[in-house]
């Protein structure tokens, strides 16, 4: 009885030691990969930061309106954010690679999925960045055109234009990431419809007097110009 217990325990200990002996080199390789990965990610971050600073990426982001969003969310500058983001993506990539070396069955699939997801993540980020750039451009264009045409509430028009474009961009980003495709499209449809309906109601009922005043002003102004002289600026 005693011999059987001792034999079993010895065999179990030997198996554990054998497994550990098999795992140890892989663990060391994984740690080396993780460490080297950290070094490479760190260097990539430093190089990317310098490139972005040289390319005045912060200024570009400021023009795109991305900087304001980050400031509101108490996040670092766009250059810093992108550098850190790339650092973490690169390092996580190496960690995943290290984990795959361990040869643990269930994890392999997750690692592959992560590497398949990376390109989509980059495309989504690009869509987001250029989407914000376009939203900012059109919001400013609407603001300037409304101010110069003497429309009432130019800022409201500008914010509406920006909001609609951002909603549209976010729906594209979500679709690219594959996050709740149908929900996002539905939400976009509902939000867009609500904005349009809201504007119609606001202009038709809520802003009845404003609309009347606006049309009267336009009409009266046109009549006034018949009497007033308008010297050419040129």
């Amino acid at each position: 009885m005693r011999d059987i217990i001792v034999g079993e325990l010895t065999q179990a200990a030997q198996e554990i030691f054998r497994d550990f002996a098999h795992l140890l080199p892989r663990l060391i390789v994984m740690l080396v990969i993780v460490f080297v990965g950290w070094l490479i990610a760190y260097v990539i971050r430093a190089i990317l930061r310098s490139i972005l600073q040289f390319a005045k990426f912060d200024r570009l982001s400021e023009r795109a309106g991305a900087s304001q969003l980050l400031t509101h969310a108490a996040l670092p500058t766009p250059t810093e954010l992108v550098s850190r983001f790339v650092f973490w993506i690169a390092w996580i990539g190496f960690i995943m690679l290290g984990i795959s070396v361990l040869g643990i069955g269930g994890l392999q699939e997750h690692v592959e999925r992560f590497f398949f997801f990376l390109p989509r993540l980059f495309v989504a980020l690009l869509i987001l960045f250029f989407g914000l750039l376009i939203a900012s451009f059109f919001a400013r264009a609407v603001l300037l055109a409304s101010v110069n045409a003497n429309f009432p509430s130019p800022r409201l028009l500008s914010i509406s234009a920006r909001t609609i474009i951002i909603i549209f961009v976010l729906s594209m980003v979500s679709e690219e990431l594959g996050v709740a495709d149908q929900t996002v499209i539905l939400a976009f449809g509902i939000a867009f419809g609500a904005v349009m309906l809201g504007l119609s109601i606001a202009f038709g009922i809520g802003g009845k007097d404003l609309a009347q005043q606006f049309l009267e002003n336009r009409f009266l102004r046109e009549r006034r110009t018949e009497k007033e002289d308008e010297p050419s600026p040129l």
Partner: peptide, 9 residues
Amino acid sequence: AGVIELESV
């Protein structure tokens, strides 16, 4: 109106 509304620009 222009100076007030276009402050951000």
